[in-house]
């Protein structure tokens, strides 16, 4: 009897959820991003008293691949750090997966399903490869074997070098380890800060291919890149940032072919 009652309640709950979800998506149809995963609105942020960003808006949809390009000092990395709670937020909101994460600390944001790979010093040099990956899953009670296997499948070199100290690996391998560490929690959004920086030219393409593969498997990617042309070619959508403000936003290819963008930001 009681079991029946329970299942009735369960069914009802599911039904009402479906109805709600349908209602919400209908209401938001006019919006360009009905399934926005990350929504940044009117963001003002900087370091200490120094304001870098003014009124920055940015969206990343579920499973989307978005890049931010722009000249040096445009505030590209600052956008990313602001999403991850590493800057001084002065205004605006950051919504993730429907919840407000504005002003949360990094150790809380990581619980929400965002992984962040900083540009420099992004591995624990004195720890082994395996220990680095274990640290990536620190917030879980146990190291998830399936996530570890998935990372080793994606980057076989890491399995080969499992017990090597991270600091003794090449730049490209360290970059893979840094991504692997961020993927240990299977985040729904991966923030990548200049993943091609400091890599030998022949490795850059390989790195972009790997990022494509991560995105193809369903992880949304928000990437900052110096290598603007290649980044725009690869991504779904791009933002051009200058002086801490939004300048252009469009499909990657459209931006690539836009005369003004080419002249001002892509070196002709």
């Amino acid at each position: 009897m009681s079991a029946d009652a329970d299942s009735d309640i369960a069914t009802e709950t599911v039904d009402s959820d479906d109805a709600d979800a349908a209602g919400v998506s209908q209401e938001t149809v006019p919006d360009r991003e009905p399934d926005a995963l990350l929504e940044v609105r009117d963001l003002d942020a900087g370091y200490g008293d120094l304001q870098i960003l003014t009124d920055v808006d940015l969206d990343v949809a579920d499973g989307e691949y978005v890049t931010i390009v722009g000249p040096n000092g445009a505030g590209k990395s600052t956008v990313m750090k602001s999403v991850f709670g590493l800057t001084n937020l002065m205004g605006g909101t950051v919504l993730f997966d429907g919840g407000d994460i504005t002003g949360l600390r990094p150790e809380d944001i990581i619980h929400e399903g965002i992984g962040y790979v900083p540009q420099n010093d992004n591995v624990f040099a004195s720890l082994t490869v395996r220990e680095n990956l274990e640290m990536g899953a620190y917030i879980l009670d146990e190291v998830p074997q399936d996530a570890l296997d998935a990372v080793f499948d994606r980057f076989p070199i890491l399995e080969e070098r499992e017990s090597q100290k991270a600091g003794t690996m090449s730049g490209g391998q360290q970059q893979m380890l840094a991504m692997g560490r961020a993927l240990m929690l299977d985040p729904s959004l991966l923030l990548l800060d200049e993943p091609s920086a400091g890599l030998a030219p022949d490795l850059v393409d390989d790195m972009f291919d790997r990022i494509d593969a991560i995105n193809d498997d369903g992880t949304a990617v928000l990437m900052v890149e110096q290598n603007a042309k290649e980044a725009l070619r690869r991504c779904d959508r791009g933002y051009v940032l200058a002086n801490g403000k939004n300048r252009y936003m469009d499909d990657g290819d459209t931006l690539l072919n836009d005369e003004q963008v080419r002249q001002d930001f892509l070196g002709g």
Binding site: V123, E131, M135, Y138
Partner: peptide
């Protein structure tokens, strides 16, 4: 291991959720 990670790179430890 978290202690060693933090001794190694405190900023990264924080980003990692330690």
């Amino acid at each position: 291991k978290a202690m060693r990670a933090m001794a190694d790179n405190e900023d990264l430890a924080q980003i990692t959720g330690i």
